[in-house]
Simulated assay, not measured.
Amino acid sequence: MTWEVHETHARRYPDEGWTLDACVAEDKAWRAADPEGHPAADGWPIWHYRYSRPDEGSGPGTLPQGPILDFHCHCWADSFAPRMRAYFENSFGITVFDSGTLDGLAERRARLGVTHSVVLPVPTNERQVPQFNVWLQDHLHDEGVIPFMGVYPWMDDPVGEIRRCAELGFKGLKLHPVNQHFRMSDPRMFPIYRAAIEEGLVLLFHTGSGIDYPTVGPDWDCSTSEIERFFDKFPYERTVLAHLGGAMDFHHFPEIHPEWPGYMDTAFELGHKPNEFILEAIRSFGVDRILFGTDSPWEDTADFLTRIAHMGFTEEEQRAILYDNGARLLGLPPRAE
């Protein structure tokens, strides 16, 4: 199967003469010329740079037949999705690749052969927690949808909300240190971690920086040192580090620590790092602990599938990354032989 890759990002590739440094320089020049303005849809060149085209690499260009599990997706209720799309498009020049709704996610699954989507909420205040969790609990048994729950760390009784959602059947909890303003090693987070672990939930962390925040702030941090401190206290094997342990740093790639327990997902990272780094990072951490994730709708699922097909993974590695590892973690049926 081949996938039609969308080029609506106006992406910049090395074979067109672009380098990351040139994109950074253009980005700085744009900011200097209009420091108060918002980027146009084709702005923010640093986001649009890719180290390689999707079909570059030593792989066969095909993927094995069978289920595909995208472990890192975002969407919103139909009434809220247009506001989120507009915010990211207008504020950051980000292309949104579907409607940002559950229906949009289902349409993309059907079109691209993806069979399962893990939906990750990121409430950034207490009021949003029930808006996300009550909405998603109605979709716990939808075909192809695996909702995770969310809490805002500084809400009243986050532990109680974790217990409630676990009893309903949620399989995991998404936490975002950058957008939710906490340090992974903050002792005030420990009751949240303990509750999730006691309930057997998958504990998925955003790692690295975010679209509108640096990696480290006065009240938040999900850098390598903070990940290390978390695992020293909670060596939980059902932990997932999103973005291969560190998103958004285009110059200095995250350190990979094979001794860490748990899993990593590929969300946002394919193309934003060189193929050789991706291959080495995944193989050194352990292919059996890597989860295919896209960061939909901010990334083009077709682009990511094309990259997995061409990057240089063996068929056995592709099977593990695309479905088998995630299915084992979530208790889904194994791939039919």
Rank of each mutant, 00 (worst) to 15 (best):
P274E: 03
V118H: 09
V145L: 12
F190N: 08
G104D: 11
F148C: 07
H251A: 09
F190D: 15
F285Q: 02
D138Y: 07
N125C: 15
N90H: 15
A10V: 03
E56L: 04
C75V: 14
E199L: 00
A40Q: 08
S284H: 09
T207Q: 10
V151C: 07
F97N: 02
H74R: 03
D15P: 10
L241P: 01
I162K: 00
T95F: 07
G293T: 01
Y13G: 01
E126M: 11
I256N: 05
L329P: 10
G93K: 09
D27Y: 13
E255R: 14
A196Y: 13
V114C: 07
H48W: 12
V119E: 03
Y13D: 01
S117G: 12
G57R: 10
G172L: 14
T2K: 15
G208Q: 10
R163L: 14
P218Y: 06
L305K: 11
L102C: 06
P121M: 08
G271W: 09
G172C: 15
F190V: 00
W298F: 15
M189P: 01
T62V: 13
V134C: 02
M149I: 06
I68G: 05
E198M: 00
D157I: 04
D295P: 08
L69W: 10
S185T: 12
W3I: 05
H38E: 07
L105F: 01
Q318W: 10
I256M: 07
D70N: 15
S79M: 09
T95P: 09
C75F: 14
P187M: 01
D265Y: 08
E228Y: 03
K28F: 08
E269S: 13
L241R: 03
T95I: 02
G245F: 09
A81I: 03
V122L: 12
P14K: 05
L270P: 08
L120P: 01
I197W: 05
I197F: 02
P123K: 14
T19D: 08
G210L: 02
Q180D: 05
G59Q: 05
S117Q: 13
R85F: 09
I94M: 13
H252N: 13
L175Q: 06
D212L: 12
N275W: 09
F132V: 04
I211P: 10
T306H: 11
M248Q: 09
R109S: 11
T314F: 13
V240N: 11
F170L: 02
D212E: 15
G61L: 01
S296M: 06
I282Y: 06
S209D: 12
L168F: 13
W47C: 02
L173P: 14
R289E: 03
E259T: 02
L332G: 12
F97C: 01
F148H: 07
P147E: 04
T301W: 00
R11T: 05
G104H: 12
H141Y: 11
A32Q: 08
G66Q: 10
V145G: 00
V118G: 06
R289I: 02
H6I: 00
T95G: 05
T62H: 15
A40L: 05
T101I: 11
A77C: 04
L102Q: 03
F231V: 00
G66I: 04
